[in-house]
């Protein structure tokens, strides 16, 4: 699975970086920094939680 950010929707709320720290960090403005788009099997649960928590619906988990 792969994590994708829709940058036109993202408002930098920053929840995703807390919930999916394995793949995401934040920049000084609060926007996510994608360290790795590939979501490990063990992290899929965290990724789903991050996608569901995004208030801007900007995060997607897509099948490779």
């Amino acid at each position: 699975m792969r994590i994708e950010v829709d940058w036109t929707r993202c408002d930098g709320h920053g929840l995703c970086a807390l919930l999916l720290a394995e793949n995401l960090g934040s920049d000084p403005d609060g926007y996510p920094v994608v360290h790795d788009t590939a979501v490990a099997r063990d992290s899929v649960r965290h990724a789903r939680r991050a996608v569901a928590a995004c208030p801007a619906l900007a995060l997607r988990l897509v099948r490779d």
Partner: peptide, 8 residues
């Protein structure tokens, strides 16, 4: 101005 990382 659509994408924050670009705008800022």
């Amino acid at each position: 101005g659509q994408c924050g990382p670009c705008l800022f």
